[in-house]
Every structure is written in C-alpha cells, then in structure tokens.
Design a protein around this nucleic acid. Structure first.
Lengths: 259, 259
DNA sequence: TCCAGCTGTGAAAATCCTGTGAAAGCAGGG
DNA sequence: CCCTGCTTTCACAGGATTTTCACAGCTGGA
C-alpha cells in the first residue's frame, strides 16, 4: 500500500523521523513549512494531508475549511500541541478527519493517515477492465475509448471518464456535484458549467456515431442519467412497441435490480 | 444530520451524558455492555460504532477485526483508558477509524463519530436509497422520481422532495412549517403558500396516474398527512388486485425487493 | 346562520436551469 | 516560438420551474 501524503509542519525532528519511516514504508511524502494552496493540493493527487495548524496562525481555521470543502475526499489529520476540546471539536466539524496531540509517535501518525486514507481509494486502480456494452455503444476502459460498430468516438480523456462514470451508473440519476466530484476529483465550484459542456460534447459525439439512439437524459434541476434508448423501431430487447401514450410525454421506466 | 450509532461500553456515567447529548442532537443511540454480533450490527444499519475494547477482554482484537472486515462501511471509534502506541497502531491497522483515550469529553466523541461517518458515507453513491412503495406508488430516490405501474409521474425536483418527505412520514401529520423547513431548507415566511401549491401539483399528478387512490390528506389548521387509501373497494390492507389496463400497452414494471 | 380564517385554484410574474456557440487559457509537440 | 488539441469560462436565448396573487370554496366555532 503506497500512500501519497503531504506534511505541513516545522518540527524538523518530527519531520526527519517521519520522512525516514514513510520512505521505508514506500510512501511518497511531500513536506512544506507553510500553507499549500488548495489548487496545488488538487494537482498533487494526495491520499492524505498531515498538518500543524499552529504555524498557520489565524488563517488556520479558514485554511482548513477551504481545503476540506474543496477536497472532500482528502484525508486530513491535524497534529498539534495543546488544544482545547472546543478547538478539536470545531476542527473535526470543519471537515478534519483526525486530530492528534504532539508529541506523537510517528508510527501512530502513519497509522492514522492510513486509516483516513483507507476509504477514499476507489476499489483498486482498475479492478474491472471489462468492456461495457450499452445500446450500440461499447466502452473499453483498457483503451480509454468508446466504440460504435468498431469505430472510435474519439473521446478525450475527460469525455471518456465522464461517459464511463455515467454508464457505470446506468439508469441512475447522478447529480452534477457528484459527477464533478468523481471525474474532476474535487468539489465543484458554485456556478461551474463544465459538466454541462462535457455532456454536450459527449452527446455530439454519440449522435455522430450512433444516430437513432439517445443515451444521456437530462433531469431538470438534478443532473443526468445514462440510459440507452432506441429512438425509433425496437426498444432494443423485447417488449413489443408501445402504443401511443394517451397524452403528452410518458416516460417508460425500465426496472432493474440493484446490485 | 441524524446519525445512528451503537455504543459498547460499561461506564454508566459516560453513557448517561452521551445519551443525553446525542438525543439532543437527534441521533439514534443504541447502548450495549457486551459485544454485539456482527450480523446484528449489519441489521442495525449503523453509521458508526463506539466501543471500549477493555470490556471484551482477549476477544477484543478478534472482534474488532471481524467487525471491521465484515462492515467496511461502518465507522469504528475506540474509546478506552490507557493504551500503548503499539496497541493503537495495531487497532488502526485492523480497521478501526479512530482511537481516543478516556477520560474523554462526550462532545469530542460525538465530533469524532461524525467525522468517521462523514468519511464512510461517501463509499456507496446512495446505498441507503431503498425504493419506497405506498399504494400503487413507487418512490425511487435514485431516480428522483415516482412511478405508478412503471410510468413516471414526471415530478419536478421539489415535487419529488415533498412527496418523499411526506411518504417517509407515512401516517403522520406534518405541519406546513415543518414541511417547508425540511424541503426548502430554511424557515417559511409568514403567509407563504408554496407548500399548498406544491401539494396541489402533487395531487394532480398522483390523480392522473393513479386515479382511485387518495394519497395526501389535509388536516385543517394543521398540515398534511400522507396515507394511501383506495377509494373504492378495500381499505387497502395490501395490494388490491391490479387496476384496469386502460391501454394494454404499458411496460410491465417488475418490482424487486429492497435489500 | 354568519363570520373569520384556512385551503384549493388558475394564471401571471419572477427565477432558475440548461443548451449552445465562441473566445480565452493551457499544455505538449514540433 | 508557434501550432494544435483540450479544457475552462462567458454570455445569451429559450424553456422549465417556482413564487406570488387574487379570488372562490370550505371549515369550524359563535
């Protein structure tokens, strides 16, 4: 198990020992003696962050809050000297995952970093390299690409990740925040339209190679749902063509069993 | 945020205070003074578990291991007296998420329980979202939509949230203020009729797809109550025989059982 | 029976949301 | 340094949804 962790602290003795131990364990450790901007943290793709708020002064609270809200998946461990119950409680409520007191044994710090990192690793790198088929579409995780009739859709990386995410949740409505969080890796800023834009690109490319099918459906005020539907002709498998819906738009709901 | 937590401890003083505080916070707390079999823990659908391994004796390690491996989604917090670094590290490596030392302030224990629940909840997108059936209605949180006979009611987001709230409180009368507070997220302004208007829209859509049933009842001067009633025939103990096909073409909806 | 207070309704007004085209920002390769 | 392809940001248009209003119909108590 190799973790990527950043440490923000100034206690050189502690840092030295920690560096030695983490290296022995095969972790990637990045040290800093000052606040690291959240954007950089995003780019580092860390598993966890260990920091002493003492050297951030008054900014500490605001900084923690910003980091935790922007990177909800990042494990955050505070390691600092004396603190009051109220301080700890406030920190934990802000989004900190664990709070330990110095002096602290490096081995324990590591164990706690492991603990907070444990969950947020998405079930292995690519546990399932199985191609996924939906409608006329074939999604191949091993190629980071999707095909229709053997012809590539020429998806970019993000487009592919978005499509894969949606397709893996076939039938379920995913909210924009969820989508962004999972594809981009951090919290969506208020008003960000990236998801919409990529949905449009996907739809264009899908339409180009697989006209006559509708894959991505919009749920107003909520998000998007992937569900291949043949626009004309057969609804794909069985079920003889539906008769005309007595009025307006009836959405036929295909049931499925939850895994 | 309402959490479901179990506590395995024997310190009655601590338990009493904790019970009081958690109740005030709206948590569901279940106490026990001995090990709870993992199978039972599963059935309890907990968010987190707080325990003192001291009263489990030698079994403690094995018990923790079993619980953590069987319920990876459960947040586990150990709260006990003196312990060595080695013990703590071993516990954390076994799967324990946090380890605090007695005496411990109840507020801090709660904050840590929240923290581990927060992290664990992100595992499954919405593993908690079991479909809810009432009368002819099927409410599916994963779709932000309700269905009758497999056909969508085409509810908007707010309509859906309102219906879900009412249905989850089936049988109880909810006051307007309460409804507004929970669906809109803030206090209702004096004289606001939004709830009434949405109730009407819901009733219209329900009536359209499920005539012959009455779902939402008005309690004059109080609020509304959700309670499916078949207008003709049976008072609805269980599924009255299927309704008239009215146009034999609709996709059959295969129901499935919630886990 | 009458009245004051609630609730049901229909429709207009105000908001919010999504689709879209295009420009601006970035990173890597040539 | 320029070019190229990808991603992010912007502003606007067209719709869908939510809120607000005025009024009619009810309810329950005096």
């Amino acid at each position: 198990m190799t973790l990527k962790v950043a440490v923000i602290d100034s206690d050189s003795g502690f840092l030295t020992v920690l560096a030695k131990r983490t290296e022995a364990a095969g972790w990637q450790l990045r040290q800093s003696t000052g606040a690291i901007p959240p954007e950089e943290l995003v780019a580092m793709k860390l598993n966890a962050l260990l920091l002493d708020p003492a050297l951030l002064g008054d900014e500490a609270g605001a900084y923690l809050e910003r980091v935790c809200s922007m990177l909800p998946e990042l494990g955050v461990v505070v390691c600092t000297g004396r603190s009051t119950v109220a301080q700890r409680v406030r920190g934990l409520r802000l989004g900190v995952d664990d709070w330990i007191t110095k002096p602290c044994h490096p081995e324990e710090a590591m164990a706690r970093l492991e603990a907070v990192s444990r969950r947020h690793r998405r079930g292995g790198p690519q546990a399932d390299a199985g191609p996924l088929v939906a409608g006329e579409l074939e999604i191949r995780p091993d190629q980071f690409q999707a095909f229709v009739g053997g012809i590539s859709l020429d998806l970019t990386r993000r487009e592919f990740e978005l499509l894969q995410l949606l397709a893996e949740a076939e039938g379920q409505v995913l909210e924009r925040e969820t989508i962004y969080q999972r594809v981009w890796g951090y919290a969506m800023a208020h008003g960000d339209r990236s998801v919409d834009v990529f949905i449009r690109k996907l739809r264009q490319k899908l339409e180009k190679r697989s006209p006559g099918w509708s894959y991505i459906h919009t749920h107003f005020g909520v998000g998007y749902r992937f569900d291949p539907e043949s626009l004309r002709g057969e609804p794909a498998l069985e079920l003889p063509p539906a008769l005309e819906p007595e009025s307006g738009s009836q959405t036929v709901h295909k049931s499925f069993t939850a895994a």
